[in-house]
Design a protein around this nucleic acid. Sequence first.
DNA 1: CATGAATGAGTGTTCATTCAT
DNA 2: AATGAATGAACACTCATTCAT
Lengths: 205, 205, 205, 205
Amino acid sequence: MGSTARLGSGRRTPKQKRSRQTVQAILDAVVRLLKREGAGAVTTNRIAEVAGVSIGSLYQYFPDKQAIFSALHERHIQEIDQSMQTALVDHASSALPDLLRAIVDAMIDAHARDPELHALLSAQTPPHAEWTRHFAVRLHGVFRLAIAARARELKTRRNPDKLAFVAAHMVESLSHGAMFRRPPGLSLAGARAETVRAILAYLRA
Amino acid sequence: MGSTARLGSGRRTPKQKRSRQTVQAILDAVVRLLKREGAGAVTTNRIAEVAGVSIGSLYQYFPDKQAIFSALHERHIQEIDQSMQTALVDHASSALPDLLRAIVDAMIDAHARDPELHALLSAQTPPHAEWTRHFAVRLHGVFRLAIAARARELKTRRNPDKLAFVAAHMVESLSHGAMFRRPPGLSLAGARAETVRAILAYLRA
Amino acid sequence: MGSTARLGSGRRTPKQKRSRQTVQAILDAVVRLLKREGAGAVTTNRIAEVAGVSIGSLYQYFPDKQAIFSALHERHIQEIDQSMQTALVDHASSALPDLLRAIVDAMIDAHARDPELHALLSAQTPPHAEWTRHFAVRLHGVFRLAIAARARELKTRRNPDKLAFVAAHMVESLSHGAMFRRPPGLSLAGARAETVRAILAYLRA
Amino acid sequence: MGSTARLGSGRRTPKQKRSRQTVQAILDAVVRLLKREGAGAVTTNRIAEVAGVSIGSLYQYFPDKQAIFSALHERHIQEIDQSMQTALVDHASSALPDLLRAIVDAMIDAHARDPELHALLSAQTPPHAEWTRHFAVRLHGVFRLAIAARARELKTRRNPDKLAFVAAHMVESLSHGAMFRRPPGLSLAGARAETVRAILAYLRA
DNA sequence: CATGAATGAGTGTTCATTCAT
DNA sequence: AATGAATGAACACTCATTCAT
């Protein structure tokens, strides 16, 4: 991990850095293509071209096309996951509404940052692929933690899994909805607030 | 010869009935293929084969491959929409919890009836296609109606659009989640009940 | 030929008239399609549609697609041939320049009447098909006759076949050229006159 | 390995030479197919097969089927054009009859070299395509040059464009006719001579 | 005879993947 | 490692033709 960089020569590091850069370039190329020319234009040859690498090199780093999408998904999830983790830590000792607010914000921001990407990505991958499941589990975990830590505040003895299940789905669905299907007359800010209010209402019921 | 034109009632309809049967056969073939052999096996020639019609006939009824998926979506949505409408009417004078329960049941049942189909279908269509939007609008409408009719019971003066937005997303997301991402230890029945409880909690908050 | 129309009952005539009308309709449909939508649009089904007959009926009158083009060619040639014959007869006792002028006019007019048709037709049929040969022979014949009848005026004893060969090609090529490849600065009338002059020069040389 | 880059002269050219060879192979394959099995056998897959390349390679060099025919035409025209140019230069200071004879020979030889190809090719391309026009212009130009340079010999003040127009059409038409529609009793040599005589007669009239 | 739904062999074309250089 | 020309299985789609009604 960090240790490779510390070893004497530093000879292997540049190679690995190059690799990572190539992988990044390929992943970025997919995103650019997806946004600029639509899903139909995302062919391996085109990806390689846009990434500025040869098609041969592309296959050096990814065994097949699907692997590229998987990697992209993973990267995307990790980014969201990261901001979730941060929200959780930052508000470890805040009141529940504040924490919820932070989580919802993180989620919406993640969607807002790259809305087309998110949309097109889900169209490209089987909806029950590993990553979807994985993401659900992570989000579920975030809420389990958040809820467990505030069991007293909530005065509830209900199954925390059940609560987390509902809360996680609410945040995901409403974040997505706030971004893409907001009805006229409901601002993004309004949707944010309403999402928090809804989850709170549920948890406190 | 000349007499055929004189025979009783529906001499023109068989032509149309046959058409409808062919279209049905094609749509059913897609579903069968999707379930039995996965999305990769859904080629136009294979569809025609499984449907028991010639590829030429298939193209007599659908201008291109995408049109087949669109038709399938439309059929699927209409089925869900139907059961939603029914729930709404059947519980026109029930108490809110009963109505909500009926709506959630209709939604989950629709997902449960053909879970793979639903899943694979969404993978095939751009997520912001007309039908997705259309369905969201329909669901939203169902809730607006349900909530408006019970404004007094809810003792609320909040924007019904806002309430409907949140409620609709909760139903859709949690129905889907109940079907596909239920955590171990949460039964389908439990998820159903919890979904209703959550929506109620929100509406009454 | 003419006799069928003279026979008693007249029962068969309408049927034959209908047939001829259908055939005409089909032939006209090809021309219309060719002109309006280009060669690519000329499919048997489309022809039938434009002609206002069913595809089945079309195949009642023509064994296959190629036969339609053949019939069209034949009709086209007969029209040109007709006007050629007329020119020949009308100027049976005119001087050579006048006759030549009449033939050239007939030829150019034939091209001018339906230039696209003529062009597209040649693109559709193998260039050495029967009809092309046939047409060449007819034109050749016309000139043989015209030249033979004026051998004294021409004071020539050269092989009339040779003269006819050259004259026929000149008239065909220059008529076509006058229509389609006239250089800027050369009017159609000018091209007409020049064609006559050129043939005369050759015949008198 | 590394040494390959150091070897003598043309190490980059093989890439281009290979390309040219492939293109040549494809073009030749079309000609072979056209001659051996007729126009109906000329499918892209068959071309690739006969050319000994994969269908994928074929599409690397030609965007679509039509482009192959266009390239073939261009090649064919350039060959004829070449021999025309040569005739013009070789007889720059010859008398007009000799020059005419050379041009007619070049034209007839071009047709004689590959008569079926020429015939089938014209059947494949719209008769007013760019190349046809282009060729007419070239031929016209050749004659303008030839005539202009001999204005004194011809003692003519007539519009050289008019003269060239007629002469060019005579050469083209009579060369083609000499090849394909020669009447019995007229030898190829006879047709050649007669063509020259006819053009001379016209120019001197 | 007319109809037009049905047929299916065959077409042009794409694109993930390989491998000689 | 990198390259990119070459590959070819597979696909969506067309259209001349048939035949049951």
